[in-house]
């Protein structure tokens, strides 16, 4: 269970989040939407402890991670997998080394077992046989798939996606959405997806949190969001610029 209580964050004099609170139950698939630069990725980074808030609490399975130091956070982070907007693959390593990174660091497995797990995970993200490729040889969609494989290989309880379909064409975006749903259903993980792709939000989320004006403006099902008559929600869903 993830609970965020009265979270506040500013960068210098610029407030980004003000009094943000919500709760996500185990197994839920939650989409966080909002305008570019609205603090969605900042919120996601607070959930995994990559950023420290100015005030408020982030509870992971009832443990407040805000008070933890970097070493204490390492234990909590083993519950998480995270897919970055730009994939953040280690460019000095091959695909197999990237995917196996978490296993090699934290589990005592033989090379044969690691190779087997890597092959199975790459198969799951529809990238079989790419073990020896370098990240520079991969397309944007392939990089995100490798990032996802790296995040799920050690079977975390929670997977965070930071704009997984940004910069991809509609067909590749659709395949990434299907992959997120497949991972959610096969591994029974809690998913949190940050996106401003409304089609993606509708497909992968059981619930939508809309971040607007530094606060959670809407917290509802995708159906309720898409049929809402609220002017702010409608403007975002319909993609209409300010006049």
């Amino acid at each position: 269970m993830i609970e965020v209580r009265s979270l506040k964050k500013s960068f210098g004099a610029q407030p980004v989040l003000q009094d943000v609170s919500f709760r996500i139950e185990n197994g839920e698939s939650v989409v966080i939407i909002g305008r570019s630069g609205g603090g969605k990725s900042v919120l996601l980074k607070h959930i995994i402890g990559l950023l420290q808030p100015d005030a408020g609490a982030v509870l992971i399975d009832s443990e407040d991670i805000v008070a933890m130091n970097e070493r204490q956070l390492l234990r909590v982070r083993r519950k998480f997998g995270m897919v970055f907007q730009g994939a953040a693959l280690f460019d000095s390593m091959t695909v197999a080394e990237n995917v196996a990174f978490g296993l090699r660091r934290h589990e005592h497995l033989t090379e044969a077992e690691i190779a087997k797990r890597v092959a199975a995970t790459l198969d799951m993200v529809d990238l079989p046989g790419t073990e020896n490729k370098n990240p520079a040889e991969l397309s944007g969609g392939m990089r995100k798939r490798v990032g996802l494989a790296r995040a799920i290989i050690y079977e975390p309880q929670i997977v965070l996606y930071d704009e997984p379909t940004t910069g991809l064409d509609p067909i590749v975006s659709d395949s990434i959405d299907k992959l997120i749903i497949r991972v959610r259903d096969h591994l029974r993980v809690t998913s949190i997806v940050v996106t401003h792709d409304m089609r993606s939000a509708r497909r992968v989320g059981n619930r939508v949190l809309m971040l607007h004006d530094k606060k959670i403006y809407a917290n509802c099902t995708p159906e309720a969001l898409f049929t809402s008559q609220d002017s702010v929600v409608r403007q975002f869903v319909d993609g209409v610029a300010d006049s």
Partner: peptide
């Protein structure tokens, strides 16, 4: 370069200091 391409954040999410 690792820092600006979020590779260091990726390390931290993989429970590596």
């Amino acid at each position: 370069t690792m820092r600006v391409t979020e590779q260091i954040d990726a390390l931290r999410t993989l429970a590596t200091h």
